[in-house]
């Protein structure tokens, strides 16, 4: 019998990301008539998010879910998704992150050089902003606020509007907001609900200005050991699952919005206001390009074509 494959995530067992990879595993198990089995280690019980890609590469685990914002340390070009308002519509996303699109192809190639293979991408939706008690509509409202961020490009966005970025881990977010260490934070829609951030912040500013994606990474070593037909099954199931994920996250975000609307005040930006945000945060795109390596530059060029 084959050995069971170890699958790790850094989020709880009932989290969207854990469920996606479980679904994938189920499908593969069914296709192989149970020849391939999986062991799940969720909640970072085996590997923390910081070491996820490394753990996949060195074979500690066979499959792991890693986020773009953390992998961006190794592949800075991934920060392209944090460039403000570059990926703010479904249409742009479909032309940038679905298999076969230029940006996806370039990034996949680079990720695959790190010892792990991106089997499929798991969309996580738009990043939005919450504030404790400050009603924000235009960039001018942001002056001198302390805002929770993650990653370098995300911080630049905050600085561009005159606020101060404070890097805080996902798990410390609640406390930082509760205690007033930060005045607000950038975070994914699902997190506002799952981490109960609505208890400590009054407003959602639906900037939806950047996109976050996760990757289902598979160990190169595990793949090499597999017979060709098995590898084909993995690829097929990955491709099949990915086609439905983008719809699913957009539906989920819509649902989250409805839930949160009862608990917080959701502020949508008017077209005029969005123009102001775009103008003020334009330097972030320039800095991404100027400070980026060749790969980042070519990804940026492709992204520019979508605007």
């Amino acid at each position: 019998a084959e050995r069971a494959l170890r699958v790790a995530t850094s989020v709880p067992h009932n989290h969207y990301l854990t469920n996606v990879i479980k679904e994938f595993a189920d499908n593969v198990s069914k296709r192989t008539n149970g020849e391939i089995t999986f062991e799940f280690y969720d909640s970072g019980s085996l590997v923390s998010d910081q070491h996820m890609d490394e753990a996949v590469a060195n074979g500690t685990i066979d499959i792991g879910i890693a986020s773009a914002s953390i992998l961006a340390g190794t592949v800075p070009a991934l920060n392209v998704f944090a460039v403000p308002f570059f990926f703010d519509t479904r249409e742009k996303l479909d032309r940038a992150v679905l298999p076969g699109t230029p940006i996806r192809t370039i990034l996949d190639k680079r990720i695959n050089q790190t010892g792990s293979r991106a089997m499929f991408w798991i969309p996580y939706g738009f990043i939005t902003m919450i504030t404790r008690d400050k009603e924000v509509h235009v960039p001018a409202d942001m002056r001198n606020l302390k805002i929770r961020t993650f990653g370098s490009t995300v911080s630049e966005f905050v600085e561009a509007v005159g606020a101060a970025p404070v890097v805080t881990s996902g798990s410390e977010q609640f406390l930082a907001l509760q205690r007033g260490i930060v005045d607000g934070g950038l975070t994914g829609w699902p997190s506002v609900e799952e981490r109960r951030l609505f208890e400590v912040s009054r407003y959602v500013i639906a900037t939806d200005h950047m996109y976050e994606t996760h990757f289902a990474l598979m160990s190169e070593k595990a793949l090499e050991k597999m017979p060709t037909e098995l590898r084909a099954i993995f690829q097929e199931e990955a491709a099949k699952l990915e086609t439905v994920l983008m719809d699913r996250i957009f539906d989920a975000t819509k649902h989250t919005r409805e839930v949160l609307a009862k608990k917080m005040e959701i502020i949508d930006l008017t077209p005029d206001e969005i123009v102001q945000w775009k103008e003020e945060t334009a330097p972030v795109a320039k800095s991404f390009y100027d400070n980026g390596n060749d790969l980042a530059k070519s990804v940026f060029d492709e992204a520019q074509k979508l605007q």
Binding site: R3, Q50, H51, A55, N58, T60
Partner: peptide, 17 residues
């Protein structure tokens, strides 16, 4: 369990970092 020992040094670093 046939798990690569690379996880040991990874865990040591993760614990202190």
């Amino acid at each position: 369990k046939d798990v690569p020992l690379a996880s040991v040094s990874m865990e040591f670093l993760g614990s202190v970092n």
